[in-house]
Simulated assay, not measured.
Amino acid sequence: MRFGIFIPQGWRLDLVGIDPAQQWEAMNGLAQRADTGPWESLWVYDHFHTVPVATQEATHDAWTLMSAFAASTTRIRLGQMCTCMGYRNPAYLAKVAATVDIISGGRAEMGIGGGWYEHEWRAYGYGFPEVRDRLAMLREGVEIMHQAWTTGSATLDGKYYQVDGAIVQPQPLQATQPLQATQPLQATQPQQPAGIPFWIAGGGEKVTLKVAAKYASYTNFAGSIEEFDHKRSVLHEHCAALGRDPGEITQSSNINTIVGATEAEAEERLRAVLDRLAPFVGGERRAGIEAEYRGSLGFGTPEQVAERLQERARHGLGYAIHYFPEAAYDTTGIELFETQVVPALS
Rank of each mutant, 00 (worst) to 15 (best):
His119Glu: 14
Gly283Asn: 13
His49Glu: 11
Phe3Lys: 01
Phe69Ile: 06
His60Lys: 05
Pro279Glu: 04
Tyr92Gln: 07
Ala264Asp: 14
Leu173Asn: 05
Ala187Glu: 10
Gly260Tyr: 04
Leu345Phe: 02
Tyr160His: 15
Ala264Ser: 10
Ala98Gly: 04
Ile258Tyr: 09
Arg33Gln: 14
Met145Asp: 05
Asn89Asp: 13
Asn28Pro: 00
Ala320Asn: 02
Lys231Phe: 06
Gln23Cys: 01
Gly243Leu: 00
Arg312Cys: 02
Arg276Met: 15
Ala58Glu: 09
Gly125Met: 02
Leu42Ala: 04
His315Phe: 05
Asp229Val: 05
Arg107Trp: 09
Glu265Leu: 03
Val51Cys: 07
Met66Ser: 03
Gly288Arg: 12
Glu109Leu: 13
Asp101Phe: 01
Thr182Cys: 00
Ala98Asn: 05
Phe299Gln: 00
Phe228Ala: 12
Thr155Ala: 12
Leu270Gln: 10
Ala278Trp: 11
Ala70Asp: 02
Asp229Gln: 10
Leu15Glu: 10
Ile5Tyr: 08
Ile5Val: 15
Arg107Ala: 07
Thr219Lys: 03
Trp121Asn: 05
Gly141Asn: 10
Arg308Val: 01
Gly10Tyr: 06
Trp199Gly: 00
Ala241Ile: 01
Pro172Leu: 05
Arg271Met: 14
Glu120Phe: 05
Glu265Val: 06
Arg139Ile: 03
Asp46Gln: 05
